[in-house]
């Protein structure tokens, strides 16, 4: 287990912004940490990095109890990018990386490798204040990667990025566990983003962890269903009543059917002179599951 928390809580002004969180992250996971704005994602991540002191509960990182005494030691193996990227705008990208190198006492080849991973080699002589937001994010990730961390904590790293930047970031994160043996914890309020890269998902709402499972468990909950549009939807419902159809606005919805069952249903309708206009397979989206889990309170 790379990260394990027990009853992790943070209280501000008498209100628990994070309440009794039991997070479990295994080695090699890409842990998607989801939740609406203000759910407590950033506070949780800050507690994991020792930037915010928990009101109660405990944290274990890489098998060691995380406290003030061994914080610096543990953080040598933890890279992070919290909220907006941090940088010295008056310095060049290379000078910013040099600060990290000196802070951590790293060899130069670590810096070169980190810069190469985020493909920023050509931007190192440019002052960071002249970077685009995407470039600043990539520089932030390079800073986090420079120490070759075992755990990478990324808080909303795609904030403010254009679609190409988001895609690039996603591909980068996906390669980190396989190529570099890292475990990644990534927070986001954009569900589709996490859907495409996470192997494990944790959902936080109002400071409480309401779901934490492998993506496969979540996938299993997303049962596919068939939508049919025909020339006579009411009659179709009667003909296919043994499949428990559900009448929808302009068609009928059937449950999860195999290819043979779908073929038989269409054949049956055609045999009764009903024209089948459309056969579509739908799958419950992550958004749908979220809305169910969060009592449809989530702002997406």
């Amino acid at each position: 287990m790379i990260v394990s928390t027990e009853n992790l809580s943070k209280e501000y002004d008498g209100i628990y912004r994070v309440n009794d969180l039991d997070i479990q992250i295994n080695e090699g996971d890409i842990y998607g940490f989801l939740g609406p704005n203000g759910a407590g994602k950033s506070t949780t991540m800050k507690m994991l990095l020792g930037l915010v002191k928990p009101s109660k509960g405990s944290i274990e990182i890489m098998g060691k109890s995380f406290n003030e005494k061994n914080r610096q030691e543990i953080l040598k193996s933890v890279g992070s990018l919290i909220e907006s990227p941090s940088y010295y705008g008056h310095l060049t990208g290379g000078e910013n990386m040099e600060i990290i190198r000196r802070l951590l006492g790293l060899p130069r080849k670590n810096i070169e490798e980190a810069v190469h991973i985020v493909r920023m080699e050509k931007q190192m002589n440019k002052k960071v204040k002249n970077y685009s937001l995407g470039m600043k994010q990539r520089l932030g990730i390079a800073m986090a990667l420079a120490r070759r961390p075992k755990l990478l904590v990324l808080d909303e790293p795609t904030n403010g990025l254009d679609p190409a930047g988001i895609e690039e970031m996603r591909e980068l994160v996906k390669t980190l566990p396989t190529k570099y043996g890292m475990t990644v914890m990534i927070s986001s309020h954009i569900l589709s983003e996490v859907d495409q890269m996470a192997t494990v998902v944790g959902i936080i709402n109002h400071g409480e962890l309401i779901f934490q499972e492998n993506m496969s468990v979540l996938d299993a909950q997303r049962q596919p269903y068939i939508i049919l549009r025909t020339s006579d939807n009411n009659l179709s419902c009667q003909i296919l009543r043994n499949m428990n159809p559900l009448r929808t606005g302009d068609g009928l919805q059937l449950g999860a059917l195999s290819d043979e069952q779908t073929g038989k249903a269409v054949q049956n309708l055609c045999a009764n002179d009903i024209a089948v206009y459309r056969v579509e397979e739908h799958r419950e989206s992550l958004e749908d599951i979220f809305l169910n889990l969060t009592g449809k309170e989530m702002t997406l």
């Binding site: 800050k46 990095l49 020792g50 930037l51 610096q72 953080l75 040598k76 933890v78 992070s80 919290i82 909220e83 907006s84 990227p85 941090s86 940088y87 010295y88 705008g89 008056h90 990290i100 802070l103 951590l104 960071v128 800073m143």
Partner: peptide, 18 residues
């Protein structure tokens, strides 16, 4: 000011400086 402008407090604290 450079620390405020670049929001570098978290960066420094996560990189060995207290």
């Amino acid at each position: 000011d450079m620390e405020h402008k670049g929001n570098t407090w978290k960066l420094l604290e996560c990189n060995n400086q207290n």
